[in-house]
Amino acid sequence: MAEPILTVKNLSKSYGEQQVLHDINFSLQKGEVMTMLGPSGIGKSTLLRCLNGLEDFQTGELVFEGQTVKADNANWQQLRQKIGMVFQSYDLFPNMTVLQNITLAPVKVQKKSKAEAEQAARQLLKRVQLSDYANSYPRELSGGQKQRIAIARALAMHPDLMLFDEVTASLDPEMVRSVLDLIKELSEQDNMTMIIVTHEMNFARQIADQVLFLDQGTILEQTAGKDFFTNPQTQRAKDFLASMDF
């Protein structure tokens, strides 16, 4: 087996007295898709944010593309160009057009020329089927469109790993499909490595190469492939799957 793209070793995190993540261990191969499942508010998002340096952690280490991650700001700025992240609240920059949203980081952070960045951005817009909206402002878009732009914005940095934090949770049901299809396509066509926190169980079952089931900040199950859905080991996981009713 090749060297994993990301390895998490013994990661623990607490806010003051309260420990939110207990001794997290996993690794991810290039091209693999991992879904993180579990009840709300038990640290999935926090874990995801730790993987992008948006939260710090007390103990443990991350190894990304063979390098142990140093927890300083400058290093994270470098790494974040390779680790894209998309949030539940889309958070497009409201004062910029769609095109400006997508080209901002490539131009300012990666110092690409404006023309080059714009050309790449238009390609991405075509890809997310929103070419007509290049010069629109986020306020003119629906939630699903905004989220697809947010994904395009992250892809513009050519990341090696993408993190999705409940990206469909604030969308209307009819918008969810387009966003999930886009993520699926990224996996199938681009072989993109992804970690996805989601409550869309059908989607998770279709896309997951690996499932991490967390409860109370602890990994309860870590199963390859679709085993988690057909053959959950713990009672908590059985209860959880039953409650999701999909």
Binding site: R49, L54, L79, N95
Partner: peptide, 27 residues
């Protein structure tokens, strides 16, 4: 300026100065 806006800029690899210049100050 909402924290999630700053986070999403940060997730794109922006430096503190770039966050200030392109996100925090205009908004």
């Amino acid at each position: 300026v909402s924290k999630t806006q700053v986070d999403s800029g940060r997730a794109l690899g922006m430096s503190n100065w770039q966050l200030a210049r392109y996100i925090v100050f205009p908004q």
